[in-house]
């Protein structure tokens, strides 16, 4: 078994209305130091595999196909645990 974290984030330059609304709200709560908020997704995937290399390739494939929307999102895969 192997566990991976996939972070899906909006591509640089793509508008993030949700992040903007949260940023403004943090300002209202007087966190004036907040310059930017961007919101993404965090996905945990457990895989029946022990080979980090091939798992990484597989996860990237999954991200390209499904987990991320390549039109507007980037992703990053981290293998965090191998049992």
């Amino acid at each position: 078994m192997l566990k991976a974290n996939v972070y899906v984030t909006l591509k640089e330059g793509v508008l993030d209305p949700q992040g903007d609304a949260v940023k403004k709200s943090l300002h209202v709560l007087e966190y004036q130091g907040v310059k930017e908020v961007r919101i993404g997704k965090f996905i945990e995937v457990c895989l029946e595999s022990k080979d980090k290399e091939s798992a990484l390739r597989e996860l990237e494939e999954m991200s390209d196909k499904l987990l991320a929307n390549p039109v507007m999102e980037d992703y990053r895969v981290e293998i965090v645990e191998v049992e």
Binding site: K11, G13, V14, L15, P17, A21, P70, V71, M72
Partner: peptide
């Protein structure tokens, strides 16, 4: 040409 897609913000 995909990266040119616009994102909508209905709240705005």
């Amino acid at each position: 040409k995909r990266p040119s897609v616009q994102v909508g913000d209905p709240f705005m």
